[in-house]
Amino acid sequence: MYRRVVRCLLSIVMLTSLAVAGNVAMAGTARADGCYTWGRSLSQGATGEDVRQLQIRVSGYPAYGAVLALDGSYGPATAAAVTRFQQAYGLSADGVAGQQTFNKIYELQDNDCTPVHFTYAELNRCNSTWSGGAVSAAQARANALVNMWKLEALRHALGDRPINTSSGFRSSSCNSAAGGSATSRHLYGDAIDLTGSPTFCQIVQRARYHGFNEILGPGYPDHNDHAHLANRSTRFWSAPSCGI
Score class of each variant (00 low, 15 high):
234 T>W: 13
228 H>K: 08
196 G>A: 04
114 T>P: 01
244 I>K: 04
60 G>T: 08
45 G>C: 13
93 A>H: 10
137 A>G: 04
112 D>V: 01
225 D>T: 15
79 A>N: 10
240 P>F: 01
190 D>T: 02
213 N>G: 10
86 Q>P: 06
20 V>Y: 13
66 A>M: 07
4 R>G: 02
172 S>F: 04
100 Q>I: 12
68 L>V: 08
96 V>M: 05
175 N>Q: 05
214 E>L: 15
85 F>R: 03
185 R>N: 14
11 S>P: 00
199 T>E: 02
93 A>W: 10
13 V>F: 14
91 L>K: 05
64 Y>T: 14
12 I>M: 12
194 L>Q: 07
161 R>C: 02
9 L>A: 10
172 S>L: 08
24 V>R: 11
74 Y>M: 06
144 A>M: 04
17 S>A: 15
56 I>W: 14
53 Q>D: 06
104 K>Y: 00
108 L>K: 09
230 A>K: 11
135 V>G: 03
91 L>I: 08
147 N>C: 14
133 G>T: 10
112 D>I: 00
51 V>I: 07
166 S>K: 08
207 A>D: 00
202 Q>G: 10
50 D>K: 11
215 I>K: 02
122 E>C: 09
73 S>W: 15
184 S>A: 14
122 E>M: 15
24 V>L: 15
96 V>A: 09
44 Q>P: 06
164 N>F: 07
75 G>Y: 10
175 N>H: 00
159 G>P: 06
116 V>A: 12
221 P>V: 00
197 S>L: 12
107 E>R: 09
41 S>K: 09
238 S>Y: 00
184 S>E: 03
216 L>Q: 10
184 S>P: 07
67 V>M: 05
15 L>P: 00
57 R>L: 10
190 D>G: 02
106 Y>Q: 07
174 C>R: 05
197 S>K: 07
146 V>L: 07
244 I>M: 15
212 F>K: 06
126 C>A: 13
222 D>I: 03
201 C>V: 06
65 G>I: 06
144 A>F: 03
84 R>H: 07
165 T>N: 11
194 L>Y: 08
153 A>H: 06
214 E>Y: 03
61 Y>A: 08
240 P>T: 05
104 K>R: 14
214 E>A: 04
43 S>C: 01
81 A>M: 08
164 N>E: 09
166 S>F: 04
222 D>A: 14
51 V>P: 08
57 R>C: 12
159 G>E: 08
111 N>F: 01
231 N>E: 13
35 C>S: 09
127 N>R: 11
14 M>W: 13
241 S>F: 09
216 L>K: 12
147 N>Q: 15
37 T>P: 08
190 D>N: 15
20 V>K: 09
202 Q>T: 05
140 A>W: 01
196 G>L: 02
218 P>R: 03
88 A>S: 14
90 G>C: 10
84 R>Q: 13
111 N>A: 13
76 P>T: 12
176 S>T: 15
131 S>L: 12
78 T>K: 13
7 R>M: 12
83 T>G: 10
83 T>I: 01
109 Q>H: 03
58 V>S: 06
244 I>A: 05
118 F>T: 07
187 L>E: 02
106 Y>K: 06
67 V>H: 12
174 C>P: 02
72 G>A: 11
109 Q>A: 11
169 F>P: 08
229 L>W: 11
